[in-house]
Simulated scan of single mutants.
Amino acid sequence: MKSNYLRLFIGVLISAVFIWLALRGLHLPDVWAGLRSAEYAWLIPSIAVYFVAVWARTWRWDYLLRPMKRIPLRRLFPVVVIGYMGNNVYPFRAGELLRAFVLRQQEDVSMSSSLATIVVERVFDGLVMLLFVFVALPFAPLPSETIRLVVVIGSAVFLGALIVFFAVAAVPQRFLRLTEWFTARLVPARLRAPVLSFARRFIDGLAALRSGRGLLMIFLTSVVIWLLETVKYWFVMRAFDFNVSFFALMLMNGVVNLATTLPSAPGYIGTFDGPGIAVLSLYGVDPAVAAAYTLTLHAALWLPITLLGIYYMVRIQLRWADIGRAAAGGGLSEPEQNGAADEATPATDNKKVHA
């Protein structure tokens, strides 16, 4: 419990720093004027495009899960939406744990294995964000040393993670033996069996990386997802009195989403807004207009999927207590066989939900 409060405190502190950096020097009445003068009808196509991107995310996750279980997209889509709702209302991207938790309850898929696929998703997302930054460079050069530093660190982290995952997927038994060796020497006896069980299931979740065709499909789908999200940025921009190139929005998208990998308060407060305002300001957009745009964009990304996630949560009778348990990692303890859904709280009754 204390660790949960500590994590929340750290996230809130980081968000507060980003908010202070974002609002420093802004004339808030000008931001309010920008919000009042916006043409909010442009949010309708932006939200529609975003949900197309969420459907593409569902298809990508289905592709990663196929070595373990084929799940119809209409059943998988609500699980994805509930997970993104969890990211929006809990700190530290706890919605990823929630997504794995709900998938176990609904489809009897091991949490450890599904978490491996979710981590792979995040790695590919990070790599595509970096790709967007590098593609945009000839048309919208990086305007500050801080952003350059973020790109360099992000490149090292995501490329390093991808190399490790490729290696594990290529020779899973060798890495499992290595895990057993370290576990026997470093982990207390009572924890060895759960650690090894988690490792086996996590390695199983990387099976999709063993296929060249699978890798290509995952990468291309990731590019499509983030291009669609940049189109959303463009639609929201049309509601405001400024214009930057699509490449500048790609750069903003990349930098903002790299920043949201940092711990923050729920809903990426601050870590989304601060970098977004900073990037647009450095490209000549009035800071007050940039702030009004970024706040509107953030709301348009946060509110629709959060409301839909709550709707699906009610449909499957998922309680907030269940979400809190999943967000705290309480669902990670699984028996060796896939009957883990039997441990689920009775409130869900293992009911399937359809989109």
Rank of each mutant, 00 (worst) to 15 (best):
G276K: 04
A94D: 00
R70G: 05
L64N: 12
S114A: 14
A41N: 06
L262D: 02
I203M: 13
I14L: 13
T261F: 04
L65Y: 01
L206M: 14
E39V: 14
L98R: 02
G339K: 10
A288F: 01
Y311Q: 05
V171S: 08
W302T: 01
L98V: 15
M1T: 09
L262T: 04
A116E: 07
T296N: 04
Y50K: 04
I153F: 13
L297Y: 04
T146P: 02
R201I: 00
R190A: 14
V195T: 12
V171M: 09
L216K: 12
D241Q: 15
E180S: 13
I203Q: 13
V81W: 01
R60I: 00
D342W: 13
L21S: 03
G276Q: 06
G160M: 07
G276E: 04
L227W: 11
V157L: 14
D273H: 15
A170P: 05
A53C: 06
F92H: 12
L131F: 09
V80K: 01
E107K: 08
I153P: 08
P335I: 04
L258F: 08
V289Q: 14
A300T: 01
S245W: 04
R70T: 10
P266Q: 06
T230H: 05
L21K: 09
F219T: 15
F18I: 13
A326I: 08
N338E: 10
T221V: 05
L8G: 10
R213I: 08
L8R: 03
W59A: 11
I305H: 10
L162Q: 08
A193V: 13
F92I: 11
L28Q: 09
V109T: 13
V89E: 01
L332D: 06
N4Q: 10
Q106M: 10
G309N: 06
G270M: 02
A248C: 09
V255E: 05
V89R: 03
P141L: 14
L318S: 06
S110Y: 06
R325C: 10
V279G: 02
S144H: 03
W181T: 11
G25E: 11
M68C: 11
V314D: 09
I71M: 12
L308K: 03
F124V: 07
T348M: 15
A239P: 08
G329W: 08
D30F: 02
Y63A: 08
E180P: 08
R177V: 15
V164H: 02
L206I: 09
